[in-house]
């Protein structure tokens, strides 16, 4: 599938794929607060979908519903055709918060989900090694989290997710706390990972440039109660170079289009 994606234009590549996640008239309420929805939206398998919108519009709520940590007040979220009613173990969830266990080394932190999933030791060791190499943390296996910088901790979080090979990566502003240069670098690495894994990515951000750089489609949410206001197809060629793509004339046009759609005063 990743090869397929590399060679054809992104729109053609993804539109043929089956639906991975289906939000069907989904509403989120927190007490009396109508926070989000009704939202109807489909995410195709292998797609890189970005969700942008003002703060508090329920972007993270969408992710929580896919992960199964939050039930919709109305409507249904389907994952591969089945309603999500319990914690969804097929997802990898990455936020800007670092959930490394401080008493475990990098290696042991990456191994954690494999221990939870009772993966045999030898297989777990193999996967941990591969995941750590993929995120460029080779040589730091025995380091403890407190010895690492913010960017490295974020890599540990990504490696930990890679290790259990989820079908869906839910990312909630994962690079929000990193500086601009590092963010750009992480974008490049993330795109590479997406291509290699063939997994579905749902990426929440409020950074339009970030959304355009990464995604096949960008969903623009309205203010509270957040609803998808606009879906913009990003028809920039793949594979993308995270630096070069910014000088693509279409890139600027997308920024303008999304900015207008956001309608922030």
């Amino acid at each position: 599938m990743s090869v397929h994606r590399l060679q054809s234009s992104p729109m053609n590549a993804v539109s043929e794929e089956p639906v991975a996640i289906d939000f069907d008239g989904v509403v989120a309420r927190f007490g009396a607060l109508h926070a989000m929805g009704p939202t109807t939206l489909s995410v195709r398998q292998g797609e890189f979908l970005a969700v942008v919108g003002p703060s508090g519009c329920g972007k993270s709520t969408l992710l929580n519903m896919v992960a199964g940590t939050l039930r919709p007040a109305e409507g249904v979220v389907r994952y591969k055709g089945d309603a999500v009613t319990a914690i969804n173990h097929d997802v990898g969830y990455i936020t800007q918060k670092n959930f490394c266990l401080p008493w475990r080394t990098v290696e042991a932190n990456v191994r954690l989900p494999l221990e939870f999933r009772r993966i045999p030791k030898a297989e777990a060791a193999r996967r941990v090694r591969i995941a750590i190499d993929k995120v460029g943390l080779g040589g730091f296996e025995k380091a403890y989290p407190r010895q690492l910088s913010g960017g490295m901790l974020q890599r540990v979080m990504i490696a930990r997710t890679l290790a259990y090979e989820p079908d869906i990566y839910l990312m909630d502003e994962p690079f929000g706390s990193l500086d601009a240069q590092l963010r750009t670098r992480m974008h490049g690495e993330l795109l590479k990972l997406w291509q290699e894994t063939g997994a579905t990515f749902v990426f929440v951000t409020h950074d339009l440039q970030e959304a355009i750089t990464l995604a096949d489609r960008v969903v623009v949410m309205s203010g509270r109660p957040g609803r998808p206001k606009r879906v913009v197809d990003i028809e920039l060629p793949r594979p993308r170079d995270v630096i070069d793509i910014q000088s693509n004339p279409a890139f600027g046009a997308y920024v303008k289009e999304l900015w207008a759609a956001l309608d922030v005063h």
Binding site: T69, H89, V91, Y93, K97, F99, P113, F116, R117, R160
Partner: peptide
């Protein structure tokens, strides 16, 4: 508590 929630997502019983 998010740490515990995160562990559950990772598959912890």
């Amino acid at each position: 508590r998010d740490l515990v929630e995160n562990a559950r997502l990772l598959g912890a019983g």
